[in-house]
Simulated assay, not measured.
Amino acid sequence: MHKIEERTSLNKDLPESEQNPDGRDRSMVALIIGFHQDDDRHWVAELSCGHTQHLRHQPPWQSRAWVLDPAQRLEKTGQPFACGWCAQERE
């Protein structure tokens, strides 16, 4: 009999689901200063660097259930966020 080794999937609220696939390192960090919804009602983070970033919860591809909860969004305000736009500007 074969032993089945189960592993957690990436669509759970784990650090693996928040990694930056484009190679951004954590030194290119801005702070989340607020949120707003776009015309399609998707949540967008406003960053201290002046850029914005859509934060969608679309399992299994993007697991960010916290973005749907006002209290959890408030907790993320002031937290570091690796800005992909700033990373592109440095290349």
Rank of each mutant, 00 (worst) to 15 (best):
76 K>E: 10
8 T>P: 11
30 A>G: 11
59 P>R: 14
91 E>A: 14
30 A>R: 11
28 M>S: 08
3 K>G: 08
32 I>Y: 01
13 D>K: 10
60 P>S: 12
32 I>W: 06
54 H>E: 11
29 V>K: 07
22 D>T: 09
23 G>A: 07
17 S>E: 10
64 R>G: 05
20 N>A: 09
50 G>E: 02
85 W>M: 12
21 P>M: 04
4 I>M: 06
74 L>T: 05
33 I>Y: 01
91 E>T: 12
21 P>R: 01
81 F>Q: 05
84 G>R: 12
85 W>A: 15
59 P>N: 07
85 W>E: 13
73 R>P: 01
49 C>Q: 11
30 A>S: 15
45 A>I: 01
46 E>I: 14
66 W>T: 04
19 Q>Y: 02
74 L>Y: 04
35 F>I: 07
86 C>E: 00
39 D>K: 13
54 H>F: 13
59 P>C: 07
59 P>Q: 12
3 K>C: 07
72 Q>D: 06
55 L>Y: 00
68 L>F: 00
27 S>P: 00
22 D>F: 13
44 V>R: 04
80 P>D: 09
73 R>H: 05
62 Q>C: 04
11 N>P: 02
25 D>L: 05
7 R>K: 09
2 H>E: 15
61 W>D: 14
19 Q>K: 10
46 E>V: 15
36 H>V: 00
48 S>Y: 02
66 W>Q: 03
26 R>K: 13
82 A>E: 10
57 H>V: 02
25 D>P: 04
86 C>H: 03
3 K>V: 15
64 R>Y: 08
54 H>N: 12
56 R>F: 12
80 P>L: 10
20 N>C: 08
9 S>A: 15
67 V>R: 01
14 L>Y: 10
48 S>M: 03
21 P>V: 07
2 H>D: 15
7 R>N: 05
54 H>P: 15
